[in-house]
Design a protein around this nucleic acid. Sequence first.
DNA 1: TAGTGGTCTAGACCACGTC
DNA 2: ACGTGGTCTAGACCACTAC
Lengths: 264, 264
Amino acid sequence: MSKVPRTYKELADLVRSKIEDGSIRPGQILKAENLAGEYGISRQTAQRALAVIAGEGLVRTTRGTGAVVQAKRPRRRVSRGQMVTRNPRYGYVFPATQDPLEPWQTHGQPYRSFEPAPHRVTEAFGIESGAEVLRRRRVTSPEGEPPFQIADTWISPAAVADAPQVAEPSTGPGGYLDRLEEVGHGPISWRETMRVRMPDQEEARLLEISTGLPVLEVSMVGRSGRDDRPVEVTIKVIPSDRVELVMDLVRAESAEWPVQPVQN
Amino acid sequence: MSKVPRTYKELADLVRSKIEDGSIRPGQILKAENLAGEYGISRQTAQRALAVIAGEGLVRTTRGTGAVVQAKRPRRRVSRGQMVTRNPRYGYVFPATQDPLEPWQTHGQPYRSFEPAPHRVTEAFGIESGAEVLRRRRVTSPEGEPPFQIADTWISPAAVADAPQVAEPSTGPGGYLDRLEEVGHGPISWRETMRVRMPDQEEARLLEISTGLPVLEVSMVGRSGRDDRPVEVTIKVIPSDRVELVMDLVRAESAEWPVQPVQN
DNA sequence: TAGTGGTCTAGACCACGTC
DNA sequence: ACGTGGTCTAGACCACTAC
């Protein structure tokens, strides 16, 4: 059938297609040593092939174990939009978060602590680079799936002073956003920024992915309705192979229809 | 000052910081051989370090030349939104395309041909996988910058039959969209999908990037206003390190303000 | 034609997670 | 403690690009 692989790319192609067509199954463990022997290539070449498909999220390598074939999951179609609503029952509902009706789970315990904040955060808050800021972190996923996203909420020192409960283990009904709005920061307005980057070691560990797999970083900066200064920054980190963002485009009301000829 | 690098990661860190602080300048050429000699490491280790920073877009490697340090460019803040407008002067204006007032250039000649279409396209058009479809391709960027995006527009066979001018070199004033709307496909509505993936060889060549640098793929499926069937699919491929997507979130009118307590 | 990236091999050592 | 991934070295060959 197929040619014997002689390079790391050919081996990566072969292993990838075997995983995709099901002849290698999720949970199975591939070892560079075995592949090397099987195809008569060096261990390093086999290892490089595994690194390639680990970077695609198809396997996950662990020292002392091997490369574990990951369960195949279609990309989640995450619906995007500009609308923020506040449901009297659930609190705020943002685009790009889960369907409020679908069961989601939290991995480990959500926790809060004061951490050196990344540049994006200190810049928004107008404080010195590397300053320690309140961070609330949770790692979540659809029920039964491996971690889907890390969500870090950083709350500005000024806002923490205004609403001390946001630094407590429990922020009370409606969460930290309601606490901030109650003390005069509402209505909060958000700007969202998205970029692609590589994960750091800790992110890869929490998301159970290879450090070679790019992640999507979605940041939302929330500004106080009182003085328009940033009060919170929420940063979500999502493995890029697990998501597909969908947005319906809306024709502006001013767009004329039927169309008028364009003058060139 | 800084420690002598002994691993490919350490060397990559060193070279990266030298590029970022300007002690290695754009246009300069790094050769694995030289780096190996300079730091007393093997050529392969130096090469691997160069591959890492090539995957970050900081250098671009060419056989027979070496690794050319790329000009530093901040990520472009591309403004996102759901609104599509049709300006009587410029035709349609979509989110995520350039500011119509900023000068952009086309790299090479835009061209059209019938090509085997990717799955996303044949699926939308409901035709057999791999069928040949009309593709209009252009590679564009802000003036004076290297290629920023590949924009491929695939037009369904049925739509080409309806409006043959869309297959001509020049589609006339208002472009192919006006031609499609004139023959009864208006108003066209769009859904946009975004994902991250690795580029293929040709994409990397056209965008002048390393094959190790992830790209953002933004697809817009345009559906006929007559029967809601897809008539065109436009796929844009953008190097992920050159862009940052920004979207202002809009509070839905129904969101109550001031906030009512959430019942838990 | 020459130069350089890209890759393979074989052997070796270290680091880290599992057992 | 053991097993495996991850990495380094040295030498070699090929492929592609520039000249």
